[in-house]
Computed example of a mutant assay.
Amino acid sequence: MDEVVRRLRAGGGWSRSSPRPWVGAVPPVVLLALFFVYPLALVVQQSFQPDSGGTSLQPYADVFASTAFREALWTTVWIAVASTVGCLVLGFVLALVIAFVPFPGARAVARFVDVFLTFPSFLITLALLFIYGTTGIVGSFQFLTTPWGVLLAEVTYFTPFVVRPLLAAFSQLDTAQLEAAGSLGARPLRIVRRVILPEALPALAAGGSLVLVLCLNEFGIVLFTGAKGVTTLPMLVYSKAILESDYPGACVVAVVNVLISVGLYGLYRVVSRRAGA
């Protein structure tokens, strides 16, 4: 042990006379607290300060008792869950086709998936408006002004977030397993179910959890579709803060939204750790 310490000191490693290792971590931690933690703390503080003054739980009581909040919470949850399921199914099928079905331009399609991830959500929604909007190709249906229109837009935008980790997982798959299963007479669907799907479960869990959190906090898609009667928690925050000037109520809804997102992320981490993902 003494020899190891001597070599570390000789090589310029840490010694008793050198600065503590945590000193270098202080500046980034301070910046993180200043630009991220402090604004969140202000939101939490404002949620306990009603317009009448003082500090109380009255803003929480008022928001939780309102029908608008309960409806927004339910709408947020079911749209996020339905969008996640749709993204998982569609993303798995698309990843299978790109990875295992030979066709011209497969590599270009895989690269386009990476580019698609950089697109803003309102751009995809705007493109859908040209098809399903009031002046679109099938505008007479006014599809995007319904909850199903929001669902379609979110599935369209977030599916690549599932395809990308699946393609990475499929690239690590041993093709010898597929060839062995095929030589034994297994049909394609059986190969997918017994060989490919088990290998894809960690990637599906990662992509699905990311999509779920993103859908819970999506604002631009709901706003740009103009869906009447579709009020999610982010839309309720916007409505209370901008339209009603109810800042304590807006902060309460924002805190609830953050707690749901952080809770789901923590649950995902626990499940993935136990599953060894």
Rank of each mutant, 00 (worst) to 15 (best):
S56N: 04
P39M: 03
I196C: 01
S18M: 11
V163Q: 05
V109H: 04
W74S: 12
P50N: 09
A275M: 15
V213L: 10
E71T: 15
F158K: 04
L57A: 03
P21K: 00
A41I: 11
F48P: 06
R190T: 15
P160G: 09
A241H: 08
A65E: 11
G11S: 14
F119P: 10
V4L: 15
R20G: 14
R16T: 09
N257I: 07
R273I: 00
A99R: 06
E244V: 13
A205V: 12
F48E: 04
A82L: 15
V256M: 00
F69I: 08
G86H: 03
V138Q: 01
L94Q: 14
F64W: 11
T231L: 13
Y132C: 04
P104I: 05
V253E: 08
T84I: 05
R194H: 15
V30F: 12
A277T: 14
I137C: 06
G139S: 06
L259P: 13
V63P: 02
F141V: 07
L96D: 08
T125A: 12
V253I: 07
G86S: 05
T118K: 00
V63T: 02
R194T: 15
E154T: 12
T76V: 12
S140H: 11
G24S: 13
T118M: 11
I191L: 13
T146V: 02
G24M: 14
I137F: 13
P160T: 08
L166K: 01
I98S: 02
L32M: 12
G276K: 09
R190Q: 15
R274D: 07
L204W: 06
V89D: 03
L223C: 00
W14H: 10
Q177Y: 12
E71C: 09
R20K: 10
V255L: 08
I131E: 04
L42C: 07
A168K: 12
V37A: 10
P39K: 04
V256H: 02
T232F: 00
G133Y: 01
R193L: 14
R70K: 12
L223R: 06
P104K: 07
D114L: 04
Q172Y: 07
V93Y: 00
R269A: 10
E71K: 14
P198W: 02
A250I: 03
S18I: 06
G226F: 12
R111Y: 10
L152C: 01
F64A: 12
T225Y: 05
G105E: 05
S140R: 14
F143P: 02
T145L: 04
F35T: 09
V44K: 01
L214H: 08
G266T: 07
F158W: 09
V211M: 11
F170K: 02
P19V: 03
I79D: 05
F219Q: 03
L214S: 09
R273W: 05
R194A: 15
T76F: 07
P50L: 10
G182Q: 13
V211L: 11
V63W: 03
L31P: 04
P147R: 01
I196N: 00
L117W: 05
F143N: 02
L34A: 15
L73K: 03
I191A: 14
V5K: 15
E218H: 01
G276H: 11
A277Q: 09
S272M: 06
T225Q: 06
R6N: 03
G86P: 00
A206N: 04
A168E: 11
Q142S: 13
V192A: 10
Y157I: 01
Y268P: 01
G149P: 00
R9M: 11
F158D: 02
R107P: 00
